[in-house]
Amino acid sequence: MIKTVNIKPENFKELYFPTLAEITEVQQFTEKEKWYKLSLLDGSNLGHYPGQFVEVSIFGAGEAPISITSAPNSYGSFELCIREVGMFTEMIHKMKAGDKLGIRGPFGQGFDVNELYGKDILIIGGGIGIVPLRSLINYILDHRQDYGRLIITYGARNSKDLLFPEELELWQSNPDVEFHQTVDYGDESWKGNVGVITTLIPPLDLDLKNTIACITGPPIMYKFVLLTLQSKGLQDDNIYMSLERRMKCGVGKCGHCQINHSYVCQDGPVYHYPDLKLIREAI
């Protein structure tokens, strides 16, 4: 017998109706990445957690899942950082302040800021993976007394691909932040570390019991970062990571983001690593 939840029509949800948002600011970070500040036109607050995403909607073109990069705030604005990787994002890149987009969400499970309370936080961001992590970083900076050390490791392909240049400098100069960055390929202008992101981890002096690693990056990165963390002695229990999949509906229906039994748009994109290990297709 299938247990069907008996739901009254007044509780049926209009799941696919976007809310209009206006772009209030645009900044170009790299050749391919732009940062957008938006406000919902109905004056409401997005009300998200770090690590969640929204479905961005362009009428005539469709929808795409995009990570929220700003920390939760009460001013009613939020920020997205969008890489141009196809026609949809190319269209967003043509937009300017004053243009309007549809927004659905926020969706999914973000980083559990309560679970992280009091811990040392090790941020590991590869490439565009820094985008959702920036939300968490700024949340922690906004609630600095609630958390232990904030260690940020960030790797990009080369120095031209580094995102949030102004903030990187702030993190670098903030005595409350341990900031390490690297690029895969160096050039004359680059004075810092050269090498993949995993090279930043071994030298770190970590309180293993009290450190939580939060990882986001391209799919290829996870395997190597996990190996590095494990050889460092960090327990699986202390690892959270965010996955990329095709979250089309955002509400656990359309099936596109499903990996084994898990819908990334509902159970993720941020997973506790012990849960993720049970999902064979995940990494």
Binding site: G60, A61, M91
Partner: peptide, 8 residues
């Protein structure tokens, strides 16, 4: 129509 409307 998609191209003329500047869409995908």
């Amino acid at each position: 129509t998609s191209i003329l409307a500047g869409k995908k």
